[in-house]
Computed example of a mutant assay.
Amino acid sequence: MKSSVRMGRVLGVSLRIHWTVPLLVMLFGYSLGSQTLPARIPDQPGATYTVAGLAGALLLLVSLLAHEAAHAVTARRKGIQVQSITLWALGGMTQMGKPRTAGAAFLIAVSGPFTSLVVGAVALAAGIGLDTLSGWSVPAAVLLWLGWVNLVLAVFNLLPAAPLDGGRVVQALTWWRTGDQDRAERAAARGGQVLGVLLIGVGWIAVLRGALSGLWLAVIGFFVMVVASAEHRSARLAPALRGLRAADAMSSPVETCQDWLTVRRCVDDVAVRTRHSTLALIDFEGRPSGLLHLPHLARVPAPQRETLRVRDVATPWTRCTTCAPDDLLAEVLEKLSPGRGLPILVTDGQHLAGIITAHDISRIVQRHTLRGTEGP
């Protein structure tokens, strides 16, 4: 996910925090400290409510991390590579490869809600016990709130629509029943699109009736609809890519530019003559060194164009997406990480063999559709 910052590793998996996470902590901390706790336990000092609200919000963040970590751990036990866990305002996302069997997909899907159910049950039991045995009413109330939130989170995530875990469960069961993974993915994604529209509608109806909390529901619905639509497109794309290698999709030869040229010289000698919006950069020894997006040149101020080198405004090689000609195209696209998308540079050792752009992928899909081999 874009606009997220890497914060270290959890259980060997890269952990990223989206900029909206502080908003999540403040929102739930404020709601818990200013409304929920005062209503349940009145006549406490304001500082007590503030600290308890912040503690509850942080505990909720930890429980969200536990939910996503369960997905990651289960996936790795099934031999699936996990790229990262990202926490953000609407929960969390675990980026991983595709399960190879319906059974693995099912176990990965249910592991998150099961963890939330366990966390919720433990928090509720701890809250009840703490209140009964010690009389610590404020900490007990925070634990009870945390327990109920996790139970609601588990139930909501089990709704039968992608990208929610319930959608993954439906996808796994459909895959197991029909043997068609692509069909199962499309069905789950369509369910997500329908659910997203329903959540948006219910949210706005709630807002029109004076319940501002409906905005949150509408935002969740919008997110579900957008992600489900993307997954539906991906599911339609999968049959077209199956069995293809990177060499089958790449455009070759690649138009290049020397990375030591000034911006002015690149514009005059290369950019105005090319039909492409992206150029591969090469160094003095002819090795690829980066990727130059021509729109970036237009943003360079005129006084700097005489001295600034194109490598200074290009994407460096270390941040480019690369693959080998024999790599499976579907696996290459599946491993695209935040900040590293298309185009993809195809390299054979230190030799630049070709480039894969969005246009190349679109052309493959069009050819596949013309053959009439895509399912419903």
Rank of each mutant, 00 (worst) to 15 (best):
P325S: 14
V365S: 05
L107S: 11
L345R: 04
G33R: 06
G196W: 06
V149H: 04
V5H: 13
R9E: 10
R190D: 02
V118I: 14
S277G: 06
R265V: 09
L217W: 12
Q95I: 12
T48Y: 00
G97H: 08
G12H: 01
A162H: 01
L370V: 07
A66P: 07
L60D: 04
A172M: 11
V267R: 00
T115Q: 06
A162F: 15
L292M: 11
K78C: 14
S251W: 05
T315A: 11
L173F: 14
G290D: 10
G339S: 04
P139E: 03
T274H: 01
F28E: 05
P42G: 03
M250N: 11
G92T: 12
E255L: 04
D43H: 03
R371T: 02
G339H: 03
L146V: 01
S252P: 07
G103E: 08
K78S: 15
R319M: 14
V267I: 15
V310N: 08
V73K: 12
P38L: 03
H293S: 09
A189W: 06
R236S: 07
L279H: 07
V62A: 15
V119L: 11
L292R: 09
S116C: 11
L24M: 14
P160D: 03
R168T: 05
L133G: 01
L261S: 02
D180G: 08
S234I: 01
A162R: 01
A358M: 07
C266Y: 09
Q366G: 11
G135R: 02
V138W: 00
R265T: 13
P113M: 14
I282D: 00
R183W: 09
P376R: 15
H293K: 13
G196C: 14
L143V: 09
R311H: 06
A187D: 00
L241T: 00
G53S: 02
M225C: 07
S213I: 10
G46I: 06
L143E: 03
P301R: 05
W175L: 12
T262K: 01
A189P: 09
A218G: 09
P99M: 12
G97A: 08
A240I: 04
L241Y: 05
D43G: 00
G120Y: 05
C257S: 09
E231D: 13
I355A: 04
M250G: 10
G12T: 03
T357C: 00
L195R: 12
N157M: 13
V224R: 10
G166R: 12
R177G: 09
S234T: 03
Q35S: 11
W216Q: 08
R190S: 04
A162S: 08
T347L: 14
E306T: 12
Q81E: 14
P376S: 15
A187Q: 14
V110L: 10
I356C: 06
V51S: 00
M26A: 15
A330F: 12
G129K: 05
W145I: 05
F223M: 08
V51W: 06
T369Y: 05
P303C: 13
G372I: 01
R299S: 10
V365T: 04
L261A: 04
G56P: 06
H296K: 10
P325R: 15
G112L: 11
A358D: 13
T174F: 11
F222P: 00
T369N: 13
T178G: 08
L144F: 02
T115Y: 04
C257L: 15
R299W: 12
Y49A: 03
A271S: 12
H359Y: 06
D360K: 15
I200C: 14
S63N: 04
G91M: 12
H71G: 06
T369A: 15
V118F: 12
